[in-house]
Amino acid sequence: MKVIKGKQSIEFEKPPYLLSWASVVAQKEGEGPLGDFFDQVIDDPFFGEKTWEMAEGRFMKQAAMLAIQKAGLTKNEIRYAFAGDLLEQNTATSYGLKDLELPMFGLFGACSTAGESLSLASITVAGGFAEHVLAAASSHIGSAEKQFRFPLEYGNQRPLSATWTVTGSGGFIVSKKKSPIKIRGITTGKIVDYGMKDPMNMGACMAPAAAQVIYQHFEDYSMAPKDYDAIYTGDLGEVGKDILIRLLNENGYDISKVHGDCGLEIYENETQDTHSGGSGCACSAVVLASMLTRKLINGEWKRILFVPTGALMSKTSFNEGESVTGIAHAVLLEKEET
């Protein structure tokens, strides 16, 4: 069996498993439609810390510890950690995970980090380099708004295409040990630039990257949308979702029946006033660690494609007039028949 598949994909010979997962979110996410599915809802947005940055780190630490605990492991049994967040120099990850003392790879994939960390963790396990690997991603609306937009107390009118950064973190243990969910393969996305410049319309900036990676995944695996029970993108929101479906339609794939977006699941956009949906590294991570895994476990779904999407930009690149480029990583998850 060939492991390298097509142009951008891997199909593991001995697939690694998703041994456990944990989601820790803040109050607003807890009040959303998925509220009951999260492992922990923390009411204090500072999580006992003094700053937004440290609070985000604390969310990640909590998710990581919970995932380790749910896997029935101790932190000494975790060989590597792959984790990242949205902040400059991965502040939240570095400070959040330092106490766990794990061999660490810090990642930056913007909001696609959940997919990137799961991909690398799977490769590491499938390659036989580790038994158990931690993958984690976090975001916090306080630290994200402060870094990328305005101070939280500043008044401005958000456009309808704007999304709401999810506060929380998702942690996963990827392992050799069998579990009900296996990671059959991955498709790694390319950086895609369609010249979009509006940072308040992230969905439109990232949709082309998602379209590219999903298209390539179908090609590499010789599969079609009907072969999947669900295809979930990370945080495209209402606007990005429509664009993605249209872009893929023009390329001969109709995913409208199986497509969902994590950003559209996590909030009640109308009543919670989140406009185009949720976003941030934590968005796709906590939706996978709650709703998506749940549906795989209870047998509602057999095969899903999880495609977190990220916008690769910084405040500097934006001020210097560069466009917002996008990236997306696909992870193919299947229910293990027992």
């Binding site: 309808l160 295409s161 369609y194 010249g195 979009m196 319309n201 439109a204 082309p208 379209a211 590219q212 298209y215 390539q216 209402e238 606007v239 429509d242 664009i243 249209r246 872009l247 023009e250 390329n251 001969g252």
Partner: peptide
């Protein structure tokens, strides 16, 4: 992808589809 819009076409498409 086989068929990709140009940057201009894409910008126009986004403009149309954004509420």
């Amino acid at each position: 992808m086989r068929k990709e819009p140009s940057k201009q076409e894409y910008n126009q498409m986004v403009e149309e589809m954004t509420p």
